[in-house]
Design a protein around this nucleic acid. Structure first.
Lengths: 307, 307
DNA sequence: CTGAAAGCGCTTACAG
DNA sequence: CTGAAAGCGCTTACAG
């Protein structure tokens, strides 16, 4: 032992990998690399890999990661012990391919079924928290703008509805608008909402891009945020600070999402029994910024004058 | 050969690494992981690594990457063939440590000396292009806000000065304001500039964060962008679209920066003679958005009324 | 309990 | 030119 220290010896990972038929390497597949949310996720995953003595390689960034067969091809050529998988446009095929893999994989913020190991955000409670925050500011006409159909989007709508229900406010389907997940969708949704009778006084956006679109749309219509319209969003992050006005948002520890995913994957690789195959990451605080304010008589009057 | 195909054989990388005493793996050290610019850089690097048959691991993300000794520790434990190195707070120590490494390394958007292989952006011409764009809009009082001292910042100031000189405009030291690289610095710089006599009609910001700070400062002072003040920035990217107004900026192919860095590193690893140890990535087009407009009598009048 | 041997799957120097 | 053998640095089953 002392000699090891004196010579600063460390075992040769190739010899070890060859003998033990394992690589000590995991790969992360991230097709939607342009989302800034993946930086903290990658960061957390890398940290956990290090803590467990594994190397993490970035497998499929961007377009390359869209190929459902990527993981199995990587397996053949690279000898990877397991995969962290996020999906992109080909969600269904990629999830199906993950199931067929002959090494463990963990879905990162994605869901296949209760059996397949996954780590997700607590979208439901996060969405409730945002909605309740807007309710606490006195808003009663609160809209939800986002993706309504995908698994994660659906859970956010559910949280929004639940919060309304708990506040004894009837859900109005006209206030839940499909926007997808980009800026154009957000801007279009704003016009849809404001053109209808009895528009909302507050909007809950599914992410920053949609929120940015709402802000642009509001400005084009001459609506002041937050005096005439409050906007709050999911996923706090550096972009929230840069928007004008800065965006109120619910924070999630995204690094923890990456960290827990990797812990789970290494447990699977090493045959350690999992306590659960479904980990949910709780939201942090609501970070209140300039895009939301209390509903009061004055702003309400200004609002009705404009519409 | 046919049999290889039939059995979809691929060589065991551990056996190969053991025998050949090389790993086929490179590591990228990125302390400033929070900068969104690193996503395309990592993406490009990963692509080149794949093209050359290498794996890329993310070595030091964030705080961990600040340790100047990280690379040599990774070498001992992981058997990496080379490093792509970016630096953070401890720039000088990290660059010095890179020089001592016993495997090749390439500096990514960083500079040590002419000998040490590096790939940088063409800051000088990029800064000239932004300045010339503002000149073409009729602006004559153009400020530069950014870091003035670091190597890269210094080159941007030089490009700004050169463009002014070519337009026969005397450089006014009061218009070059040190802001560092964050939002607070940008906001403070705006107040400094506008409080002085003869303020600028256009500002060139060194990055998005500084530009965002300028926008906030302008709004607080009641200055309209672009009517009263034009703002343009370095580094086009997804954030430029989200600011309000959207930001005019000069684009750089950051993925190419990562790609070329990796090509250079693999050449070094494989003993392929380099044509040059210094690669400069040229800027792309100026992307013109809502934050800039032509200087005209009306806006100029409005501007002077306000100050 | 300790220590020598076999073997993981390659590559390359060497014998035929 | 072709083919068998040695050896990279580990781990683990086995002999002593």
């Amino acid at each position: 032992m002392q000699a090891m220290k004196d010579l600063s010896y460390s075992p040769n990972p190739h010899a070890r990998g060859l003998r033990m038929a394992r690589s000590g390497t995991i790969a992360m597949i991230v097709p939607e690399i342009n989302s800034p949310a993946f930086l903290p996720i990658i960061y957390g995953a890398q940290k956990a890999a290090r803590d467990r003595g594994y190397l993490m390689i970035l497998g499929g960034l961007g377009e390359e990661g869209e190929d459902p067969q990527l993981a199995s091809r990587m397996l053949a050529s690279n000898h990877v012990d397991g995969f962290l998988i996020s999906t992109g446009r080909n969600e269904a095929e990629q999830l199906a391919a993950a199931r067929e893999l002959e090494v463990p994989s963990v879905l990162v913020n994605r869901y296949l079924d209760a059996q397949h190991p996954h780590v997700v955000l607590d979208d439901l409670r996060g969405a409730m928290a945002v909605t309740e925050y807007l309710l606490s500011l006195g808003h009663r006409r609160i809209a939800f703008v986002g993706g309504l159909s995908r698994f994660l989007g659906g859970r956010r709508v559910a949280g929004y509805k639940l919060a309304l229900e708990l506040a004894s406010i009837a859900f109005d389907p006209a206030l839940a608008v499909e926007s997808g997940y980009d800026r154009q969708g957000g801007e279009a949704a704003l016009h849809t909402l404001m053109a209808a009778g009895d528009p909302p006084t507050a909007i809950f956006a599914t992410n920053h891009l949609v929120a940015a679109g709402l802000l642009v749309g509001a400005q084009k219509r001459g609506l002041r945020v937050p005096q005439d319209l409050s906007i709050a969003s999911f996923y706090d992050g550096p972009i929230a600070e840069l928007l004008n006005p800065a965006l109120t948002a619910v924070a999630f520890p995204l690094d923890k999402l990456g960290y827990e995913s990797t812990q789970m994957l290494v447990d699977l690789i090493e045959g350690i029994e999992l306590r659960t195959r479904s980990v949910t990451i709780a939201h942090d605080k609501i970070v209140s910024r300039g895009s939301t304010s209390a509903l009061n008589q004055q702003s309400s009057a200004a609002f009705h004058r404009l519409t």
